[in-house]
Design a protein around this nucleic acid. Sequence first.
DNA 1: CACCATGTTCCTTG
DNA 2: CCAAGGAACATGGT
Length: 301
Amino acid sequence: MPELPEVEVLVRHLRPQLAGKIIRAVRVCRAKVLLPTSVAELGRTLRGARFTALSRRGKFLVFTLRHRQTAAISLLGHLGMTGRMYLAPAGATEPKHAAVVLELGHEKFIFEDTRYFGRFTLATGALDKLGPEPLGQNFSARSLAEALGGSRQAIKVKLLDQSVVAGVGNIYASEALFHARLPPSVPAGRLTWPEVRRLWRALRSVLRQAILCGSTVPLDFSGSAKNRGPEREARLNLFYYGANKDSPLTYEERLRVYDREGKPCVRCGRAVRRIVQAARSTFFCPQCQRGPRTPATGLKT
DNA sequence: CACCATGTTCCTTG
DNA sequence: CCAAGGAACATGGT
């Protein structure tokens, strides 16, 4: 569950659950997710520390911890493609692909990641390379135009660049371009000012809606018996694909083009197309997302 | 077996 | 320097 909205919802969910809790023991099942931090260093640093804050930056979770009256510790989490984080009862069965487990007393914090592309590290340098938060104050249509200016890279590919905007991934890049009615292949630097403004608004709108939608989804990933099996899976997938009865939004209002190749565009009915850019799938409507048409006639050269 | 997958980084080639 | 393409990481679903 890994783009900005999913991470945001997870952060909001975990924050009150972790606040004040003390790490009694650290168990690392996959040392590679800590890199460049070592198993020994993580254990030494976290054992006895208390969670004091949790925030999000792009797709990263930023945990803040503290030992008795000492300087704050920052811990960076990233879900990669398949990562999940949740609290479970201390005695709960652990998932097959648990990467790190923090024992908190009667509970334990679990970071599981099937593909192990995620991170759980004390090295925070990755944050320095991130661009502005798309929902933050420093992200304006003007700053976006500046970040895109001059680039001949396709706008869809550019949106995946975390130094341009932090937190946009493959799904919401397609969604935002659909919302803004922009063709994914247009060179980023060739967008007109009105188009950049549309894209800016689309990004914020799409991400905000996704957070809103996700906030109404029960995020109980605990591995306890009642949360396993098909029901749990349904809930997890629901985040991206499913319908949520408690939400005022309908299915089409969440993912309008992503993974809809061949299906009718929800706006015009034309078949949604899939292309590959930078080795990733892009979905778009060839009718609604056409480039700026040059008049067939009457254009002087 | 084939191909696909919400992410990131590194390498090569032009 | 830039852009594009591919591979790598590791596992699972269809």
